[in-house]
Amino acid sequence: MLELRLIQGSLLKKVLEAIKDLVTEANFDCSATGFSLQAMDSSHVALVALLLRSEGFDHYRCDRNLSMGINLNNMSKMLRCAGPEDIITIKGDDGTDTVTFMFESQKQDKISDFEMKLMDIDSEHLGIPDAEYQAIVRMPSAEFARICKDLGSIGDTVVISVTKEGVKFFTRGDVGSANIVCRQNTSVDKPEDSTVIEMNEPVSLTFALRYMNSFTKATTLSEVVTISLSSELPVVVEYKIAEMGYIRFYLAPKIED
């Protein structure tokens, strides 16, 4: 028996909008600790990892570990039918091959049930070791989204470099080149507006902008984005989800061939 009730249903709506274009179908894993997902995009260049911890739900019942294969596009279609203030409950059962999304309006005067068939998805789970990063940049998520969008209009790849001057985003295309430098800036009245750069050593890596612009669809989930870089590892772009978890995007770099 599975019953997860999320008062802030909009979080789930935003999560689906953030991942449905990157990954078409995935297994949602439900366990006592929470509701999670790990999936790669079709070209195995990027990986998304989602965790919504059980204590973040208003009611969390998961009798046995359950894995639900879902087409994310279809799930997104259903969640779009939920209002921004609706309470969303996910119901499943290990016996049935369906999942139900229940939407309750705030005034409890409208209850909707959307039922979807589950799919069999064989997805190998990857072990993601905790790593030491050479540089970690924490900045306003809207700022990062704007930079990726702007650079995406000039070139296809972005070179992200962290030095003691700050974090640099560089691209070059047919029309020319663009270079954006963001400096450490903690002298702001709101902490979420600050840019904090933790650099253990300088690092510079190249990534495909189309993936970065796909990740920034998660901007609505958090005012802050954290970008962790290491020359030996994929970049991690992380958006925290209001005290209940996170959505992390991992992207493999491009190298000079």
């Binding site: 990857l126 072990g127 493999a252």
Partner: peptide, 14 residues
């Protein structure tokens, strides 16, 4: 051009 690496090369199969 650059060579795009894949993500599964970095993580281990569980």
């Amino acid at each position: 051009g650059d060579l795009q690496l894949i993500i599964s090369g970095y993580f281990f199969q569980l």
